[in-house]
Design a protein around this nucleic acid. Structure first.
Lengths: 214, 214
DNA sequence: TAGATTGTTAATCGATTAACAATC
DNA sequence: TAGATTGTTAATCGATTAACAATC
Protein backbone atom coordinates (compact mmCIF):
# COMPACT_ATOMS: atom_id res chain seq x y z
CA UNK A 1 0.00 0.00 0.00
CA UNK A 2 1.66 3.23 -1.14
CA UNK A 3 2.21 5.75 1.58
CA UNK A 4 2.26 9.48 1.13
CA UNK A 5 4.65 10.17 3.97
CA UNK A 6 7.90 8.22 4.02
CA UNK A 7 9.85 8.20 7.25
CA UNK A 8 13.44 9.29 7.31
CA UNK A 9 14.51 5.86 8.53
CA UNK A 10 13.16 4.32 5.33
CA UNK A 11 14.75 6.95 3.08
CA UNK A 12 18.15 6.31 4.64
CA UNK A 13 17.87 2.58 4.00
CA UNK A 14 16.91 2.82 0.34
CA UNK A 15 20.38 3.73 -0.96
CA UNK A 16 21.84 0.69 0.74
CA UNK A 17 19.23 -1.56 -0.84
CA UNK A 18 20.03 0.03 -4.16
CA UNK A 19 23.76 -0.45 -3.74
CA UNK A 20 23.37 -4.09 -2.83
CA UNK A 21 20.94 -4.79 -5.65
CA UNK A 22 23.44 -3.30 -8.06
CA UNK A 23 26.06 -5.70 -6.75
CA UNK A 24 23.68 -8.63 -7.12
CA UNK A 25 22.76 -7.54 -10.62
CA UNK A 26 26.38 -7.26 -11.66
CA UNK A 27 27.01 -10.69 -10.18
CA UNK A 28 24.28 -12.05 -12.44
CA UNK A 29 21.74 -12.83 -9.71
CA UNK A 30 18.22 -12.93 -11.13
CA UNK A 31 15.93 -13.22 -8.14
CA UNK A 32 16.13 -12.70 -4.40
CA UNK A 33 13.73 -13.10 -1.50
CA UNK A 34 13.21 -10.59 1.26
CA UNK A 35 14.69 -13.02 3.75
CA UNK A 36 17.89 -13.50 1.72
CA UNK A 37 18.13 -9.74 1.24
CA UNK A 38 17.61 -9.17 4.94
CA UNK A 39 20.27 -11.68 5.87
CA UNK A 40 22.82 -10.06 3.55
CA UNK A 41 22.06 -6.56 4.72
CA UNK A 42 21.84 -7.36 8.39
CA UNK A 43 18.19 -6.47 8.68
CA UNK A 44 14.97 -8.49 8.72
CA UNK A 45 12.77 -9.76 5.92
CA UNK A 46 9.85 -7.98 7.58
CA UNK A 47 11.60 -4.66 7.50
CA UNK A 48 12.49 -4.95 3.85
CA UNK A 49 8.97 -5.90 2.82
CA UNK A 50 7.58 -3.16 5.02
CA UNK A 51 9.97 -0.60 3.54
CA UNK A 52 9.26 -1.54 -0.06
CA UNK A 53 5.53 -1.60 0.53
CA UNK A 54 5.70 2.16 1.13
CA UNK A 55 6.25 2.57 -2.60
CA UNK A 56 4.32 -0.23 -4.25
CA UNK A 57 4.23 -3.95 -4.82
CA UNK A 58 7.41 -5.15 -6.46
CA UNK A 59 7.49 -8.83 -5.55
CA UNK A 60 5.66 -11.99 -6.30
CA UNK A 61 4.41 -14.60 -3.84
CA UNK A 62 6.42 -17.78 -3.85
CA UNK A 63 9.14 -16.18 -5.96
CA UNK A 64 10.49 -13.09 -4.28
CA UNK A 65 11.82 -10.11 -6.18
CA UNK A 66 13.39 -9.88 -9.59
CA UNK A 67 16.73 -8.23 -8.91
CA UNK A 68 16.81 -6.04 -12.00
CA UNK A 69 13.20 -4.94 -11.64
CA UNK A 70 13.61 -4.04 -7.99
CA UNK A 71 16.91 -2.27 -8.69
CA UNK A 72 15.25 -0.23 -11.35
CA UNK A 73 12.20 0.59 -9.21
CA UNK A 74 14.40 1.83 -6.37
CA UNK A 75 16.46 3.86 -8.83
CA UNK A 76 13.23 5.55 -9.92
CA UNK A 77 12.13 6.14 -6.34
CA UNK A 78 15.47 7.75 -5.51
CA UNK A 79 15.22 10.03 -8.54
CA UNK A 80 18.28 8.63 -10.26
CA UNK A 81 16.63 8.91 -13.68
CA UNK A 82 15.62 12.53 -13.31
CA UNK A 83 18.75 13.92 -14.97
CA UNK A 84 19.66 16.08 -12.02
CA UNK A 85 22.39 18.63 -12.42
CA UNK A 86 24.97 19.74 -9.88
CA UNK A 87 27.75 22.28 -9.50
CA UNK A 88 30.69 22.28 -7.13
CA UNK A 89 31.50 25.32 -5.04
CA UNK A 90 35.14 25.39 -4.02
CA UNK A 91 37.79 23.42 -5.90
CA UNK A 92 40.21 22.78 -3.05
CA UNK A 93 41.41 19.28 -2.24
CA UNK A 94 37.98 18.06 -1.25
CA UNK A 95 36.11 19.63 -4.15
CA UNK A 96 38.71 18.29 -6.53
CA UNK A 97 38.57 14.85 -4.94
CA UNK A 98 34.83 14.73 -5.44
CA UNK A 99 35.01 15.92 -9.04
CA UNK A 100 37.78 13.49 -9.92
CA UNK A 101 36.80 10.43 -7.92
CA UNK A 102 33.14 10.49 -7.02
CA UNK A 103 30.83 8.97 -9.59
CA UNK A 104 28.09 11.58 -9.69
CA UNK A 105 26.56 9.96 -12.74
CA UNK A 106 25.91 6.75 -10.81
CA UNK A 107 23.55 8.75 -8.62
CA UNK A 108 22.01 10.35 -11.69
CA UNK A 109 23.78 13.68 -11.43
CA UNK A 110 25.63 15.55 -14.14
CA UNK A 111 28.30 17.98 -13.01
CA UNK A 112 27.90 21.06 -15.14
CA UNK A 113 30.42 23.44 -13.59
CA UNK A 114 32.67 24.22 -10.65
CA UNK A 115 33.45 27.57 -9.06
CA UNK A 116 36.44 28.94 -7.24
CA UNK A 117 38.26 32.23 -6.75
CA UNK A 118 41.85 31.10 -7.19
CA UNK A 119 43.35 32.56 -10.41
CA UNK A 120 45.44 29.41 -10.71
CA UNK A 121 42.44 27.23 -11.45
CA UNK A 122 39.69 29.54 -12.71
CA UNK A 123 39.53 28.94 -16.45
CA UNK A 124 40.86 25.40 -16.27
CA UNK A 125 38.78 22.29 -16.17
CA UNK A 126 38.84 19.23 -13.97
CA UNK A 127 37.64 16.01 -15.54
CA UNK A 128 35.94 18.05 -18.23
CA UNK A 129 34.12 20.15 -15.67
CA UNK A 130 34.88 23.82 -16.33
CA UNK A 131 35.98 25.92 -13.37
CA UNK A 132 34.52 29.43 -13.38
CA UNK A 133 35.14 32.37 -11.11
CA UNK A 134 32.78 32.46 -8.14
CA UNK A 135 31.70 35.96 -9.20
CA UNK A 136 29.90 34.48 -12.18
CA UNK A 137 27.83 32.09 -10.04
CA UNK A 138 24.57 34.01 -10.30
CA UNK A 139 24.90 34.44 -14.03
CA UNK A 140 25.56 30.75 -14.50
CA UNK A 141 22.62 29.72 -12.34
CA UNK A 142 20.31 32.10 -14.21
CA UNK A 143 21.25 30.41 -17.47
CA UNK A 144 21.54 26.78 -16.36
CA UNK A 145 18.96 24.92 -14.34
CA UNK A 146 20.83 23.47 -11.37
CA UNK A 147 19.39 21.08 -8.83
CA UNK A 148 22.17 20.67 -6.30
CA UNK A 149 25.19 22.67 -5.19
CA UNK A 150 28.05 20.80 -3.59
CA UNK A 151 29.50 23.03 -0.88
CA UNK A 152 33.21 22.54 -0.35
CA UNK A 153 34.23 26.15 0.25
CA UNK A 154 36.30 27.42 3.19
CA UNK A 155 34.36 27.89 6.42
CA UNK A 156 34.50 31.66 6.44
CA UNK A 157 32.58 32.02 3.15
CA UNK A 158 30.22 29.10 3.75
CA UNK A 159 27.19 30.97 5.00
CA UNK A 160 27.33 33.73 2.41
CA UNK A 161 27.81 31.21 -0.39
CA UNK A 162 24.80 29.27 0.85
CA UNK A 163 22.73 32.46 0.81
CA UNK A 164 23.72 33.18 -2.76
CA UNK A 165 22.83 29.65 -3.82
CA UNK A 166 19.43 29.83 -2.18
CA UNK A 167 18.69 33.23 -3.69
CA UNK A 168 19.65 31.93 -7.08
CA UNK A 169 17.21 29.05 -6.68
CA UNK A 170 19.09 25.80 -6.20
CA UNK A 171 16.92 23.04 -4.80
CA UNK A 172 19.42 21.27 -2.62
CA UNK A 173 22.77 21.85 -0.98
CA UNK A 174 25.17 19.00 -0.31
CA UNK A 175 27.07 20.52 2.55
CA UNK A 176 30.60 19.30 3.28
CA UNK A 177 31.60 22.24 5.46
CA UNK A 178 31.48 21.89 9.22
CA UNK A 179 29.13 24.83 9.44
CA UNK A 180 25.48 24.32 10.31
CA UNK A 181 23.77 26.24 7.53
CA UNK A 182 20.91 28.52 8.38
CA UNK A 183 18.72 28.65 5.34
CA UNK A 184 15.80 31.04 5.12
CA UNK A 185 13.91 29.12 2.45
CA UNK A 186 12.49 25.91 3.91
CA UNK A 187 11.99 24.48 0.43
CA UNK A 188 15.74 24.21 -0.02
CA UNK A 189 17.00 20.88 1.23
CA UNK A 190 20.33 20.70 2.99
CA UNK A 191 22.09 17.37 3.26
CA UNK A 192 25.00 17.58 5.65
CA UNK A 193 28.11 15.46 5.50
CA UNK A 194 29.60 16.21 8.88
CA UNK A 195 32.93 14.42 8.97
CA UNK A 196 33.57 15.49 12.54
CA UNK A 197 30.27 14.08 13.79
CA UNK A 198 31.05 10.79 12.13
CA UNK A 199 34.56 10.62 13.60
CA UNK A 200 33.29 11.56 17.05
CA UNK A 201 30.69 8.80 16.93
CA UNK A 202 33.52 6.40 16.06
CA UNK A 203 35.58 7.88 18.87
CA UNK A 204 32.73 7.26 21.29
CA UNK A 205 32.33 3.70 20.16
CA UNK A 206 35.98 2.75 20.51
CA UNK A 207 36.24 4.60 23.84
CA UNK A 208 33.13 2.92 25.12
CA UNK A 209 34.56 -0.47 24.23
CA UNK A 210 37.70 0.37 26.23
CA UNK A 211 35.59 1.33 29.21
CA UNK A 212 33.52 -1.84 29.03
CA UNK A 213 36.68 -3.95 28.96
CA UNK A 214 37.98 -2.47 32.20
CA UNK B 1 20.43 8.00 36.03
CA UNK B 2 23.41 6.58 34.17
CA UNK B 3 22.56 3.95 31.63
CA UNK B 4 24.76 1.09 30.59
CA UNK B 5 23.39 0.81 27.09
CA UNK B 6 23.27 3.98 25.02
CA UNK B 7 21.09 3.93 21.92
CA UNK B 8 22.54 4.81 18.57
CA UNK B 9 20.14 7.71 18.23
CA UNK B 10 21.65 9.33 21.31
CA UNK B 11 25.22 8.72 20.19
CA UNK B 12 24.54 10.40 16.86
CA UNK B 13 23.15 13.49 18.58
CA UNK B 14 26.03 14.01 20.98
CA UNK B 15 28.49 15.40 18.42
CA UNK B 16 25.96 18.04 17.42
CA UNK B 17 25.47 19.06 21.02
CA UNK B 18 29.22 19.24 21.38
CA UNK B 19 29.63 21.33 18.25
CA UNK B 20 26.97 23.80 19.33
CA UNK B 21 28.31 24.06 22.87
CA UNK B 22 31.71 24.88 21.41
CA UNK B 23 30.15 27.69 19.43
CA UNK B 24 28.35 28.99 22.51
CA UNK B 25 31.55 28.79 24.54
CA UNK B 26 33.51 30.69 21.92
CA UNK B 27 30.76 33.29 21.82
CA UNK B 28 31.23 33.77 25.56
CA UNK B 29 27.91 32.28 26.66
CA UNK B 30 28.10 31.06 30.26
CA UNK B 31 24.87 29.20 30.86
CA UNK B 32 22.07 27.66 28.81
CA UNK B 33 18.85 25.86 29.60
CA UNK B 34 17.67 22.67 27.95
CA UNK B 35 14.79 24.57 26.37
CA UNK B 36 17.10 27.19 24.82
CA UNK B 37 19.42 24.44 23.61
CA UNK B 38 16.49 22.54 22.16
CA UNK B 39 15.19 25.58 20.36
CA UNK B 40 18.59 26.28 18.77
CA UNK B 41 19.16 22.70 17.73
CA UNK B 42 15.65 22.06 16.50
CA UNK B 43 14.88 19.44 19.09
CA UNK B 44 13.00 19.45 22.39
CA UNK B 45 14.09 20.29 25.92
CA UNK B 46 12.84 16.88 26.99
CA UNK B 47 15.00 15.09 24.50
CA UNK B 48 18.12 16.94 25.53
CA UNK B 49 17.56 16.30 29.23
CA UNK B 50 16.73 12.69 28.49
CA UNK B 51 19.86 12.28 26.35
CA UNK B 52 22.18 13.86 28.90
CA UNK B 53 20.67 11.86 31.75
CA UNK B 54 22.07 8.72 30.12
CA UNK B 55 25.51 9.86 31.23
CA UNK B 56 24.99 11.71 34.48
CA UNK B 57 23.60 14.85 36.04
CA UNK B 58 25.20 17.91 34.55
CA UNK B 59 22.64 20.63 35.25
CA UNK B 60 21.23 22.52 38.14
CA UNK B 61 17.58 23.22 38.85
CA UNK B 62 16.54 26.78 38.25
CA UNK B 63 19.80 27.52 36.44
CA UNK B 64 20.29 25.13 33.56
CA UNK B 65 23.70 24.01 32.37
CA UNK B 66 27.05 25.71 32.58
CA UNK B 67 28.19 25.81 28.96
CA UNK B 68 31.84 25.08 29.61
CA UNK B 69 31.13 22.30 32.08
CA UNK B 70 28.67 20.59 29.77
CA UNK B 71 30.98 21.01 26.78
CA UNK B 72 33.77 19.40 28.72
CA UNK B 73 31.59 16.55 29.99
CA UNK B 74 30.44 15.72 26.48
CA UNK B 75 34.02 15.90 25.25
CA UNK B 76 34.89 13.28 27.87
CA UNK B 77 31.93 11.11 26.94
CA UNK B 78 32.94 11.19 23.28
CA UNK B 79 36.48 10.21 24.16
CA UNK B 80 38.05 13.41 22.88
CA UNK B 81 40.56 13.47 25.71
CA UNK B 82 41.79 9.94 25.19
CA UNK B 83 44.69 10.90 22.93
CA UNK B 84 43.55 8.66 20.14
CA UNK B 85 45.87 8.07 17.21
CA UNK B 86 45.02 7.63 13.55
CA UNK B 87 46.68 6.81 10.28
CA UNK B 88 45.52 7.52 6.74
CA UNK B 89 45.50 4.78 4.13
CA UNK B 90 45.67 6.20 0.64
CA UNK B 91 46.96 9.68 -0.06
CA UNK B 92 44.96 10.49 -3.17
CA UNK B 93 42.85 13.62 -3.41
CA UNK B 94 40.52 12.61 -0.64
CA UNK B 95 43.19 11.36 1.74
CA UNK B 96 45.19 14.49 1.11
CA UNK B 97 42.13 16.68 1.60
CA UNK B 98 41.50 15.09 4.97
CA UNK B 99 45.10 15.39 6.10
CA UNK B 100 45.38 19.00 4.99
CA UNK B 101 41.94 20.33 5.87
CA UNK B 102 40.26 18.19 8.46
CA UNK B 103 41.01 19.11 12.04
CA UNK B 104 41.63 15.69 13.52
CA UNK B 105 42.96 17.24 16.72
CA UNK B 106 39.60 18.87 17.40
CA UNK B 107 38.14 15.40 17.70
CA UNK B 108 41.06 14.33 19.88
CA UNK B 109 42.97 12.42 17.22
CA UNK B 110 46.64 12.72 16.33
CA UNK B 111 47.61 11.70 12.82
CA UNK B 112 50.79 9.70 13.13
CA UNK B 113 51.35 8.52 9.56
CA UNK B 114 49.91 8.05 6.10
CA UNK B 115 50.46 5.22 3.65
CA UNK B 116 50.42 4.99 -0.11
CA UNK B 117 52.13 3.09 -2.91
CA UNK B 118 52.91 5.91 -5.31
CA UNK B 119 56.68 6.52 -5.54
CA UNK B 120 55.94 10.18 -6.12
CA UNK B 121 54.67 10.70 -2.59
CA UNK B 122 56.12 7.89 -0.48
CA UNK B 123 58.88 9.49 1.57
CA UNK B 124 57.33 12.96 1.52
CA UNK B 125 55.17 14.41 4.21
CA UNK B 126 51.85 16.19 4.12
CA UNK B 127 51.21 18.72 6.87
CA UNK B 128 54.01 17.09 8.87
CA UNK B 129 52.44 13.67 8.51
CA UNK B 130 55.01 11.29 7.02
CA UNK B 131 53.89 9.18 4.06
CA UNK B 132 55.24 5.63 4.14
CA UNK B 133 54.97 2.82 1.66
CA UNK B 134 51.94 0.63 2.20
CA UNK B 135 54.26 -2.38 2.46
CA UNK B 136 55.48 -1.09 5.80
CA UNK B 137 51.99 -0.88 7.28
CA UNK B 138 52.28 -3.96 9.50
CA UNK B 139 55.66 -2.94 10.80
CA UNK B 140 54.41 0.52 11.66
CA UNK B 141 51.34 -0.81 13.43
CA UNK B 142 53.44 -3.26 15.43
CA UNK B 143 55.55 -0.38 16.70
CA UNK B 144 52.92 2.33 17.10
CA UNK B 145 49.64 1.91 18.92
CA UNK B 146 46.97 3.04 16.47
CA UNK B 147 43.31 3.45 17.27
CA UNK B 148 41.76 4.33 13.95
CA UNK B 149 42.62 3.85 10.28
CA UNK B 150 41.15 6.26 7.78
CA UNK B 151 40.39 4.29 4.62
CA UNK B 152 40.69 6.35 1.45
CA UNK B 153 42.25 3.76 -0.82
CA UNK B 154 41.00 2.80 -4.30
CA UNK B 155 38.05 0.42 -4.32
CA UNK B 156 39.92 -2.57 -5.66
CA UNK B 157 42.29 -2.74 -2.68
CA UNK B 158 39.74 -1.74 -0.07
CA UNK B 159 38.83 -5.15 1.27
CA UNK B 160 42.36 -6.49 1.46
CA UNK B 161 43.56 -3.33 3.16
CA UNK B 162 40.78 -3.63 5.71
CA UNK B 163 41.84 -7.20 6.41
CA UNK B 164 45.42 -6.15 6.99
CA UNK B 165 44.30 -3.41 9.36
CA UNK B 166 42.12 -5.75 11.36
CA UNK B 167 44.85 -8.38 11.57
CA UNK B 168 47.28 -5.75 12.75
CA UNK B 169 44.89 -4.76 15.52
CA UNK B 170 43.39 -1.36 14.78
CA UNK B 171 40.27 -0.67 16.82
CA UNK B 172 38.25 1.31 14.33
CA UNK B 173 38.08 1.96 10.60
CA UNK B 174 36.77 5.23 9.25
CA UNK B 175 35.67 4.02 5.85
CA UNK B 176 35.40 6.51 2.98
CA UNK B 177 35.30 3.93 0.22
CA UNK B 178 32.01 2.95 -1.30
CA UNK B 179 32.64 -0.65 -0.39
CA UNK B 180 30.68 -2.33 2.39
CA UNK B 181 33.48 -3.84 4.46
CA UNK B 182 33.13 -7.36 5.71
CA UNK B 183 35.14 -7.58 8.87
CA UNK B 184 35.69 -10.88 10.62
CA UNK B 185 36.46 -9.39 14.03
CA UNK B 186 33.28 -7.97 15.55
CA UNK B 187 35.32 -5.94 18.03
CA UNK B 188 36.58 -3.72 15.22
CA UNK B 189 34.24 -0.83 14.68
CA UNK B 190 33.59 0.40 11.18
CA UNK B 191 32.19 3.88 10.67
CA UNK B 192 31.10 4.37 7.09
CA UNK B 193 31.01 7.67 5.28
CA UNK B 194 28.98 6.70 2.24
CA UNK B 195 28.91 9.77 0.02
CA UNK B 196 26.65 8.09 -2.50
CA UNK B 197 24.05 7.18 0.12
CA UNK B 198 23.99 10.76 1.29
CA UNK B 199 23.62 12.15 -2.23
CA UNK B 200 20.90 9.64 -3.06
CA UNK B 201 18.95 10.63 0.03
CA UNK B 202 19.24 14.24 -1.14
CA UNK B 203 18.19 13.17 -4.62
CA UNK B 204 15.12 11.47 -3.17
CA UNK B 205 14.20 14.51 -1.16
CA UNK B 206 14.40 16.98 -4.05
CA UNK B 207 12.64 14.54 -6.38
CA UNK B 208 9.90 13.93 -3.85
CA UNK B 209 9.37 17.67 -3.54
CA UNK B 210 8.96 17.91 -7.32
CA UNK B 211 6.41 15.13 -7.27
CA UNK B 212 4.42 16.71 -4.44
CA UNK B 213 4.29 20.01 -6.34
CA UNK B 214 2.70 18.40 -9.38
C1' DT C 1 10.77 33.85 48.79
C1' DA C 2 9.12 33.08 43.89
C1' DG C 3 10.48 31.73 39.40
C1' DA C 4 13.02 28.76 36.73
C1' DT C 5 14.64 24.57 35.45
C1' DT C 6 16.37 20.21 36.43
C1' DG C 7 16.17 14.75 36.41
C1' DT C 8 12.93 11.25 36.12
C1' DT C 9 8.64 8.86 35.69
C1' DA C 10 4.61 8.20 32.86
C1' DA C 11 2.21 8.70 28.42
C1' DT C 12 2.44 8.84 23.63
C1' DC C 13 4.04 8.08 19.36
C1' DG C 14 6.43 5.74 15.72
C1' DA C 15 9.23 2.10 14.02
C1' DT C 16 10.34 -2.71 13.96
C1' DT C 17 9.09 -7.42 14.20
C1' DA C 18 5.90 -11.26 14.05
C1' DA C 19 2.08 -13.59 12.16
C1' DC C 20 -0.77 -15.06 8.49
C1' DA C 21 -4.08 -15.23 4.70
C1' DA C 22 -3.46 -14.85 -0.20
C1' DT C 23 -1.35 -16.72 -4.13
C1' DC C 24 2.37 -17.60 -7.39
C1' DT D 1 -0.37 -29.82 -6.11
C1' DA D 2 2.90 -28.41 -2.26
C1' DG D 3 6.30 -25.16 -0.92
C1' DA D 4 7.72 -20.63 -0.86
C1' DT D 5 7.12 -16.05 -0.28
C1' DT D 6 4.62 -11.98 -0.76
C1' DG D 7 1.88 -7.67 1.19
C1' DT D 8 -0.46 -6.34 5.12
C1' DT D 9 -2.42 -6.38 9.63
C1' DA D 10 -1.48 -6.93 14.49
C1' DA D 11 1.79 -7.08 18.35
C1' DT D 12 5.87 -5.53 20.34
C1' DC D 13 9.47 -2.75 21.20
C1' DG D 14 11.97 1.47 21.66
C1' DA D 15 12.33 6.35 21.30
C1' DT D 16 10.30 10.80 21.95
C1' DT D 17 7.45 13.90 24.39
C1' DA D 18 4.83 15.47 28.34
C1' DA D 19 4.22 16.09 33.12
C1' DC D 20 5.76 17.05 37.64
C1' DA D 21 7.95 16.76 42.18
C1' DA D 22 12.37 18.34 43.77
C1' DT D 23 15.23 22.15 44.48
C1' DC D 24 18.53 25.76 43.16
Amino acid sequence: MKKDHISNAVIRRLPRYFRYLNDLHEAGVIRISSSALGKSLGSTASQIRQDLSCFGEFGQQGYGYNVETLRSEIADILGINKEHTAIVLGVGNLGRALIENFHFERSGFTLTAAFDTSPAIVGTSVRNVPVYHADSLEQFLAEHHTDVAVLTVPQRVTQQTAHRLVSAGVQGIWNFTNIELSISNPAVIVEDVHFADSLLALSYMISDRDAAAN
